[in-house]
Design a protein around this nucleic acid. Structure first.
Length: 475
RNA sequence: GGCCCCAUCGUCUAGCGGCCAAGGACACCACCCUCUCAAGGUGGAGACACGGGUUCGAAUCCCGUUGGGGCUGCCA
């Protein structure tokens, strides 16, 4: 049927999977799902020089992680060579291409100051035979214009006079991106081309090629050029200088649903104004017409916040499950055999509302599984500086020796101790926390102590006492 | 240089001629809650780039300026 939606995400495997690519893939996927259409994947691997097989794996892994799996088997552009060759032959027979042996320097040298940039059409009428060492160029009409109706940008006009006779086939006979892309879209029955705005300038060329290759039965695809993702300097995100690897965010402990949620908010927003959205809500409301025009800054702060929201909404079991990869070495600082799942699960609800990314989990619970948790220097210094520390440590040792070792009783005992010393509980518990966990902040103290157990708690309090005495010779 | 795109709080955005002395979210500040930290609550600071039109009326439409960005390869 005429209205069937078929979109494709067409990355080239030239590096680790990029957040900008993920956003493009997501918008294609959302659009396809919203319309009950097909989301396809095409690996554009025609440039053997820069493609690596492990990058292909990276794309597949990242898409699977994000839950953006293609509806049909992925297409390898390199497997479409016959089709490409056939298209080249047809264009040649139609007299739309010509061979050219100009080198870049030659073109530059011919150019008088002030002339338009790009290729000057030098070989257009030289009648060169196609062959090795010669590229094939498309004869762009000298006058007229190409009008692109872009769903997000509206009508965009390109005067043909400003478009050079662009190369479509390398001197090796290999098709260039601009051609292969069109041939493949035609072959795959693509109805909508949803891609980054950086490809807008190549669109008139592709429209020309599509017109030359597609029959009247194949109208142009609908184009939609998404705004770029930029860094804090408002430049297109770059692999070199910006943290753009999706894999890195995954490793840091972002949830795929949070990542997808955040990406969807870059250049689009839900009509309700709500920002915490499920995948289903995104699909239901997504419309290309509502996509913004302006570039968007990829703000990790906001991603973090959203991830925290998603994390907190997870059922406890799912949260514990999500934590799993972070609870064993090398992610976790403790030896695997010291980890006790039951203890972690008991602490998990308190951890869940305190972390924004999963990689922060080990730091919240390490004192439970490390024989001697590392002591934060600043925290210890504060304890040392506090004149009441000896009294608090001593008082705690005494109080905890025979009080029931459960949170409420520990709370009461510590509160009583604090009162006897004329200090607020909040301040009084600090030296105890540092002595036992090595840190100034962490999950609620009395739950922590109860889980650690009386014996170990007392041992750590004594250790701290001894350390204090050693550092502060009586005086 | 040429072609093209873009322009609301620091950031992501709502707004599609009157309901806007511009709303929400993140970040920030203050207070509350509180065993630390989070979470939560309340309040605060914070934007229509500029100039011309059009109109009874413009953040919204048009033109220009300025500023940003993209493309300009025998990469994709």
């Amino acid at each position: 049927m005429a209205g069937a939606v078929r979109v494709r995400f067409a990355p080239s495997p030239t590096g680790s999977f990029h957040v900008g690519s993920a956003r493009t893939a997501l918008f294609n996927w959302l659009f396809a799902r919203h319309h009950g259409g097909a989301f396809l994947l095409r690996i554009e691997d025609t440039d053997a020089e820069r493609n690596r097989e492990d990058w292909v794996g990276g794309i597949l892994d990242a898409l699977a992680w994000l839950g953006l799996e293609p509806d049909e088997a992925p297409v390898r552009q390199s497997a479409m060579v016959e089709r490409h060759q056939e298209a080249i032959d047809r264009l040649l027979r139609a007299g739309l291409l010509y061979a050219c042996d100009c080198r870049r320097e030659d073109v530059e040298a011919r150019k008088a100051p002030g002339t338009p940039p790009g290729y000057d059409g030098h070989c257009r009428d030289r009648g060169l035979e196609p062959g090795p060492g010669r590229v094939l160029r498309f004869k762009v009409p000298d006058a007229g214009e190409v009008v692109v109706e872009d769903v997000v940008r509206g009508t965009v006009r390109f005067p043909l006079a400003a478009i050079e006779d662009f190369a479509v086939v390398k001197s090796t006979g290999q098709p260039l991106f601009v051609l292969a892309n069109v041939v493949d879209d035609l072959a795959m029955g693509i109805s909508h081309v949803v891609r980054g705005e950086d490809l807008l300038p190549s669109t008139p060329k592709q429209v020309l090629l599509w017109g030359a290759l597609a029959g009247p039965a194949r109208p142009l695809p609908v184009y939609a050029h998404l705004p770029m993702l930029v860094n804090e300097k408002r430049q297109k995100l770059s692999k070199r200088r910006d943290p753009v690897a999706v894999e890195q965010y995954r490793a840091e402990g972002y949830l795929p649903e949070a990542f997808v949620n955040y990406l969807a908010l870059l250049g689009w927003s839900h009509p309700s104004g709500r920002e915490l959205l499920s995948r289903e809500e995104l699909v239901a409301a997504f419309r290309l017409e509502d996509v913004n025009h302006a570039p968007a800054f990829f703000d990790v702060q906001k991603l973090r916040h959203l991830n925290g929201e998603h994390l907190r909404r997870l059922p406890l079991g799912a949260f514990v499950e999500a934590c799993r990869p972070y609870l064993t070495p090398p992610s976790a600082p403790w030896p695997a055999e010291r980890f006790d799942p039951a203890v972690f699960e008991a602490m998990a609800p308190l951890v869940q509302e305190r972390v924004a990314v999963l990689s922060e989990v080990p730091g919240m619970v390490d004192f439970l599984f490390l024989p001697d948790p590392p002591l934060e220097a600043a925290a210890w210094a504060q304890v040392v500086a506090d004149p009441l520390t000896p009294a608090i440590l001593g008082g705690a040792l005494e109080a905890y020796a025979d009080c029931p070792f459960e949170p409420e009783a520990l709370h009461q005992a510590t509160a009583a101790l604090a009162e006897s010393l004329g200090r607020k509980l909040g301040k009084a518990q600090a030296p105890i926390r540092v002595a036992v966990t090595g840190r100034r902040v962490g999950p609620p103290l009395f739950e922590s102590l109860a889980l650690l157990g009386r014996e170990e708690t007392l041992r750590r309090l004594r250790t701290a006492q001894a350390r204090l005495a050693a550092e502060q010779p009586a005086g």
